[in-house]
């Protein structure tokens, strides 16, 4: 359960959510132009910040194990498909040095972005992330920012509910020997249709419950308190990004 908010009072927890989101966006853009030295520095920074936020880096990496497998596949695919000088002179190991390097850079960028994203998720209340998204959408015309923010919040809240319902339905189908059906389309239909129906029923009940609790357009907004520490954090991130660009 690492991909979720962990309450705490660390320096990273205290930074304004808008600044964290801006830093994440800035860092993601900069990482597109970063090479091995910059990526190494960024990876070290991400791990140090996770530790500073009282979130064990090892625990985080373990939580991302399937993501790491995916990154491994990306590296292998790049190594095999990019033409160039072979890494090993063996017909069964067709990877090239250029491909391997390109794959490692790409995987490194994705890993570092994921770790910084994780840092934001772990140290920021979901309601603050929602409020920050709302704040960034405010200047854009024709976008109902409060409704968008509420939709994001509901999505975060209901993904586990829908997954739990899906697992429950899957168990019920397996208990009635769905595995005997050879046609995968039929199996998907048997799972998908009741799941959709349940999801719509849940959505209907949710709408009633929200109405009963007076949901409307006029809501209390988030109270932002940006201090010198937040501006210092933004300055540090900007400086760090400039350093990454410089050494790459």
């Amino acid at each position: 359960m690492i991909i979720g908010f962990h309450s705490g009072r660390t320096v990273v927890h205290r930074v304004d959510a808008r600044i964290k989101l801006a830093a994440l966006a800035l860092f993601s853009l900069v990482s597109l132009r970063t090479g091995f030295p910059g990526l190494g520095l960024a990876l070290a920074a991400a791990l140090v910040l996770l530790a500073a936020a009282r979130c064990s880096p090892l625990h985080c990496l373990r939580g991302l194990k399937w993501y790491l497998v995916l990154l491994g596949c990306i590296v292998a695919a790049r190594a095999v498909t990019t033409p160039g000088e072979p890494v090993v002179a063996h017909p069964w190991l067709p990877g090239t040095r250029q491909g391997l390097e390109a794959g490692l850079v790409l995987a490194g960028r994705l890993l570092v972005i994921a770790l910084f994203g994780l840092l934001v998720t772990v140290t920021t209340r979901p309601s603050h992330i929602r409020a920050a998204v709302e704040w960034y959408l405010r200047p854009i015309p024709f976008i109902p920012q409060q409704q968008v923010a509420t939709m994001i919040g509901l999505l975060v809240r209901f993904i586990p509910v829908i997954l739990a319902q899906s697992a429950e339905l899957d168990d019920a189908l397996r208990a009635r020997a769905i595995e005997q059906r050879r046609n995968p389309l039929r199996r998907i239909t048997h799972l998908g249709m009741p799941l959709l129906r349940r999801t719509f029923v849940t959505a209907d009940r949710l709408a009633s419950a929200m109405e009963a609790r007076c949901y409307g357009m006029e809501r209390t907004g988030h109270q932002w308190r940006t201090g010198t520490g937040d501006w210092a954090a933004l300055g540090l991130v900007t400086g760090f990004c400039a350093l990454l660009l410089a050494i790459s």
């Binding site: 209340r125 979901p126 309601s127 509910v161 009940r205 609790r213 007076c214 949901y215 809501r219 209390t220």
Partner: peptide, 24 residues
């Protein structure tokens, strides 16, 4: 389950009062 809208326990409890536009 279909009544709880907040991402955390306290966020959910705050949903109604926020809709009533009460001060923070």
């Amino acid at each position: 389950d279909s009544q709880i809208v907040g991402e955390t326990v306290s966020d959910d409890a705050a949903f109604g009062p926020e809709n009533l536009n009460w001060p923070a």
